[in-house]
Design a protein around this nucleic acid. Structure first.
Length: 425
RNA sequence: AGAGGAGUGGCAGAGUGGUCGAAUGCACCGGUCUUGAAAACCGGCGUACCGAGAGGUACCGGGGGUUCGAAUCCCUCCUCCUCUGCCA
């Protein structure tokens, strides 16, 4: 959530930033927020005075009662009735204003970093580099949704029967591949000094709001109405929320967490022709890295995270590229996001396998995540996260890119994790 | 899941209707003393909002209520502990 103080101080920059995202009438919206905040201050000032008067009288009554002057106390009691009423009206008014202000602030996305271009759609994401060679596949190569059937690795039909579309069963070497990838990703993270965390995959409403999934992505999360809990769409939610309402000190940094969780997404509205096989699922496995950083370090941390993700993908011998998302495609809470995509030769498509973002203080503000400098100054921390990595699309591209007429070759780095180096028919 | 108990400052812990934002101890910070340290002594030590400041307001697990006045009474939710039940 944006800070009113920062909106005031950087009005012009914020207007431009929101415009980059295609927000309509950003100056009007920001002015409305400032206006609400001014109202808030004014009403609160008046209310504080009323309450102050009321407290004074109450204290007086207390003194009179104790010294036995009951009659005088009664007189003052009558006086308080009117004050009480005023106070009640004012506090209701204040609550309304605060609620309106909060709602407005929740509606506004983060301000993009200056490197982010505006753009109209995902077509305008900037391609920053591309590495690795495209696979030389044999003439009768197939997309992974055929390969998984032929090799018996993933079964969508059973998933349909037991749960529904988008909930596949991984079987035999397919299941081992999932498990191997998860373990490999975790071990690489641990080697890079991330602390492994295994969080709950259900979170409460407060947590969803704090990292910004709610109310923005309300319809994208599975919701358990009997307990009002949400299935996490990413480990970002529980991991980042560890630091909700926390005041850190300098010595706590760096804070680097890694966690594997299944992720659940309803993907409402995005179910189309483009999502065959493992490309888009309602449940998938992902290893996520999260860092909490001091503001002055957060962009260095972002670079470190990008390198970590790049190293992972490169080690799997997959052709990949990195893009910087344009304003239009940028997630609600992010200030800047780099997407990593791998080339999947069977379907001849680029698949997004990681998204690495700096949220600056936008999440931290909702989280009330602050830190105290050695000088005693308190300020909001920065939050960052990235996928490292999402399993199904990596799995798909490994299968597609390494297929031969005799079987599918596994990347060398995975062999210790799999116990096999080749998938035969 | 049922019955009972409990949630107070960084920690421990007092306070059960009236100058309580909260005793006391520990921890922490500054000072005196000391060659230095410890001990002792003196002082300071929660957060947020408003205000130039003086100061004001709110906060004793969350929310609501009773009252002139609530940490204290009532309702409700959450969490923890004990016992019973169930379960991997």
């Amino acid at each position: 959530m944006l800070l009113v103080r920062e909106i005031k101080e950087n009005f012009g920059r914020y207007v431009l930033g929101l415009r980059k995202r295609g927000v309509l009438d950003p100056d009007e919206q920001l002015r409305h927020i400032i206006d609400l905040d001014d109202q808030r201050k004014e009403v609160q000032g008046i209310l504080d005075d009323v309450l102050s008067r009321s407290n004074q009288l109450s204290r007086k009554i207390g003194v009179l009662m104790q010294s036995g002057h009951k009659g005088e106390a009664q007189k003052i009691k009558l006086e308080t009735a009117e004050i009480k009423e005023r106070g009640k009206a004012l506090s209701e008014q204040l609550q309304d204003i605060e609620k309106a202000l909060k709602e407005k602030l929740y509606e506004l996305p983060n301000i993009p970093n200056k490197k982010v271009v505006a753009g109209q759609s995902e077509e305008d994401n900037e391609l920053l580099f591309q590495k690795g060679d495209f696979p030389q596949l044999e003439i009768d190569h197939q997309p992974h949704w055929e390969l998984i059937k032929d090799y018996g690795l993933v079964d969508f039909n059973i998933g349909n029967k037991i749960t529904g579309a988008g909930f596949p069963f991984y079987k035999a070497q397919g299941a081992r591949l999932v498990r191997g990838l998860v373990n490999y990703f975790l071990d690489k993270g641990i080697a890079a000094d991330y602390q492994e965390v295994q969080p709950p995959i259900l979170v409460n409403e407060v947590s969803g709001k704090a990292t910004g999934q709610l109310p923005d992505k309300e319809g994208q999360m599975y919701h358990l109405s009997d307990t009002n809990l949400y299935l996490i769409p990413t480990a970002e939610v529980p991991l980042t929320n560890i630091y909700r309402d926390v005041l850190l000190v300098e010595a706590d940094f760096p804070i680097k967490m890694i966690g594997y969780t299944p992720c659940f997404r309803r993907e409402a509205g995005s179910w189309g022709a483009d999502v065959r096989g493992l490309n888009r699922l309602h449940q998938f496995d992902k290893v996520e890295v999260v860092q909490i950083a001091k503001p002055e370090n957060s962009y260095a941390v972002l670079e470190e995270m990008k390198l970590h993700v790049e190293d992972l993908i490169a080690s799997l011998e997959l052709p990949y590229r990195m893009l910087r998302l344009c304003g239009k495609d940028l997630g609600f809470t992010a200030a800047i996001t780099y997407d990593f995509e791998v080339y999947s030769g069977g379907q001849k498509k680029w698949l997004e396998v990681s998204s690495v973002s700096n949220f600056e203080n936008y999440q931290a503000n909702r989280l009330k995540l602050r830190y105290k400098t050695n000088g005693g100054k308190k300020q909001l921390a920065h939050t960052l996260n990235g996928s490292a990595l999402a399993v199904p699309r990596i799995l798909a591209s490994i299968l597609e890119n390494n297929q031969t007429s005799k079987g599918i070759k596994m990347p060398a780095v995975l062999q210790p994790y799999l116990g096999f180096d080749f998938i035969e028919k």
